[in-house]
């Protein structure tokens, strides 16, 4: 069954009095538990597509259904609620909250939903190899460690889907590989759909399905591969 469905997705911006079409007529479906890479060069529209699929933005045309919920019909706060329940994020620049410890960063998605957070956060930090660093602030962690905390945060509330936007972009190759291994392992273990946005074909090859974008349109799709 489809977890994520987008149909005829289009996004245009007004810039200097002209209309700029960033995405044009994107249509595909993702099953639950899939590991998908969205591959494309800079300017191909992959970050824009991620934003639309995750409910961070509204399309100019088309629609997105996430776990049966039509995102286009929701208000900004409604989409925030959906994100809080069903979506996790890993960003290129980590985006940890600097005034929170590693433990507290991982707790936030659970606390937002009013759930007990401490034990789950501790377990996840152990899983990503940072069990003893929970009380450190982001500024006291290396880039790789910060990204592992971000991965723990992304999975803390057992989301249906995790979006990773160039998660290894600010990491060296070895560290980046570690982070990808972690996410792939959690995708398998927790059956959480993983969408990886990248410009790196080698990284994209780790996924079981690759959707290639160019100039705002899907130019290739290897299709879903059984888990």
């Amino acid at each position: 069954m489809s977890l994520l469905r987008c149909a005829s997705l289009t996004k245009t911006y007004s810039s200097g009095g002209r209309e700029l079409t960033v995405l044009s007529n994107i249509t595909f479906e993702l099953e639950a538990g899939a590991f998908v890479a969205i591959l494309g060069p800079s300017g191909s529209g992959k970050s824009t597509l991620l934003g639309l699929l995750a409910g961070l933005d509204r399309p100019s045309a088309g629609d997105v259904h996430l776990d049966g919920v039509a995102l286009g019909e929701l208000s900004e706060d409604g989409r925030a609620r959906v994100r809080g329940e069903k979506v996790g994020f890993v960003f290129q620049s980590f985006h940890l909250i600097p005034t929170l410890t590693a433990m507290e960063n991982v707790q936030v998605p659970l606390e937002l939903r009013g759930l007990a957070a401490r034990d789950r956060a501790r377990e996840l930090l152990e899983r990503v190899g940072l069990g003893k660093r929970g009380h450190h602030f982001p500024a006291q962690l290396s880039g790789g460690e910060q990204q592992r905390v971000a991965v723990a945060r992304a999975f803390s509330h057992a989301p249906r889907i995790v979006f990773a936007d160039e998660p290894t972009g600010n990491l060296d190759a070895a560290t980046g590989a570690t982070v990808i291994d972690l996410m792939a392992e959690m995708n398998r273990a927790l059956a959480t759909t993983l969408v990886l946005v990248t410009h790196d074909p080698e990284l994209a090859a780790r996924a079981r399905r690759v959707i290639r974008l160019a100039d705002g349109a899907v130019v290739a799709d290897t299709g879903a591969v059984p888990a």
């Binding site: 961070l56 609620r81 959906v82 809080g84 979506v87 994020f89 985006h95 600097p98 005034t99 937002l112």
Partner: peptide, 16 residues
């Protein structure tokens, strides 16, 4: 601004 954006991303409402 970045922290606020992260909170919004993680599901916090504007009011919260």
């Amino acid at each position: 601004m970045e922290t606020i954006a992260v909170l919004r991303c993680l599901g916090a409402s504007a009011g919260r």
